Computed example of a mutant assay.
Amino acid sequence: MSATAAHWTVVPARDFARHAARWQRLHAAGAASPLLAADFVQALLDVFGTGRELLAWHGDDTDAMTIVAPGRRGVWNTFQPAQAPVGLWLQADTRPADGLLAGLLQALPGPALMVGLTQCDPVLMARPGGARSFDYIRTARITVQGSFDDYWLARGKNLRSNLKKQRNRLRQDGIATRLEIVRSPDDMAAAVADYGKLETSGWKATEGTAVDAANDQGRFYRTMLEALARRGAASVYRYWFDGPAGPHLAAMDLCVEGGGCIVILKTAYDEALGPQLSPALLMREEATRGLFDEGRFERIEFYGRVMEWHTRWTDEIRTMYHLNGYRWPLLGRLHALAARKKGDSARVSAAPPAPAAAAPGS
């Protein structure tokens, strides 16, 4: 299937590999979040795609691209597996995307009445005014500027004091901390397996949401990290407690890099270490110091819903949003009116609810 309408071209997303070079060129020309790199997108489609997704691009010069999936009758949404922190919409600049949606609806198989762009980041795409955009979640970032010592002194006294006490306690017990950073694609399979062992030993295992080397989540993270690592755009942080009994894996981060930022996709820690230790926060302190000292990145992105611990690390918080487009303006007004009558405007969006996030240690 191929269709063109209002300068949009639509093809099956199962053919993404054939068009990945087009996607990557646009990615390089725009805001360039590593979460929208072609390798990241291909892994999402390979593991979580159903075969019903469509790839679309706008204009002969390709100034916008997206992957959409069918929802309820007449509704399309950006393809949004839980493992994708931002919606799969890519464009050459950061202008609002609402002006492009009417043409996209004409190009999609019909009757296409509404398209929802989910989990939009205002840093990547400015939020338009009006009643068609809806709050999603608040998310946090750290701007890497100046020295780590200045950044750390600006953090709360309780945080600094608490982590210092934990380090003193570890030293008294004869335990040294060690931060290991893995970047080789050959090491990613073992890293994801180690990460899965941490998650499956904690609360996520009881809810069935833990990463495991043998499940789809584990397959996605391995495939994606290996692909990104081959071009130097992935890293895994392992945090070790080295003591009399030998090395003990205490915490891990799975990260992707690019566009001036590092994104911390997933964090896990050994919950058996007890409430008196926060291994993920100890790791975060050392990793953040290293990122400030290296100066390779301008930003550290957390994504996910802001938790209390985020506010101890940064006051840079922004609101992500969903954006709806309608085939006819009247349909949008009626949709918004119906939602207001229900007293729950968030339900206007076709997006799924925000995933729960866990604090990395006490």
Rank of each mutant, 00 (worst) to 15 (best):
D39Q: 09
D39Y: 00
F40G: 06
V41W: 00
Q42Y: 09
Q42T: 14
Q42K: 13
L44P: 01
L44N: 01
L44T: 00
L44H: 03
F48G: 04
F48C: 03
G49D: 07
T50L: 02
R52S: 07
A56F: 01
W57K: 04
W57P: 00
W57L: 10
T62Q: 11
I67E: 05
A69K: 05
A69D: 08
P70A: 10
G71W: 13
G71R: 15
R73F: 12
R73P: 11
V75T: 11
V75Q: 13
N77K: 09
N77E: 10
N77V: 05
T78N: 13
T78P: 06
P81G: 12
P81F: 10
A82I: 15
Q83V: 15
Q83A: 13
A84E: 10
A84I: 07
P85G: 06
V86E: 09
G87V: 04
G87I: 05
L88C: 12
Q91F: 02
Q91W: 01
A92S: 07
R95A: 15
R95K: 14
R95M: 09
R95I: 07
D98G: 01
G99L: 05
L100I: 07
L100H: 08
L101N: 05
A102V: 08
G103S: 09
L104S: 07
L105A: 11
L105C: 12
Q106N: 06
A107F: 00
A107T: 00
P109A: 12
G110D: 01
G110Y: 02
G110V: 04
P111M: 01
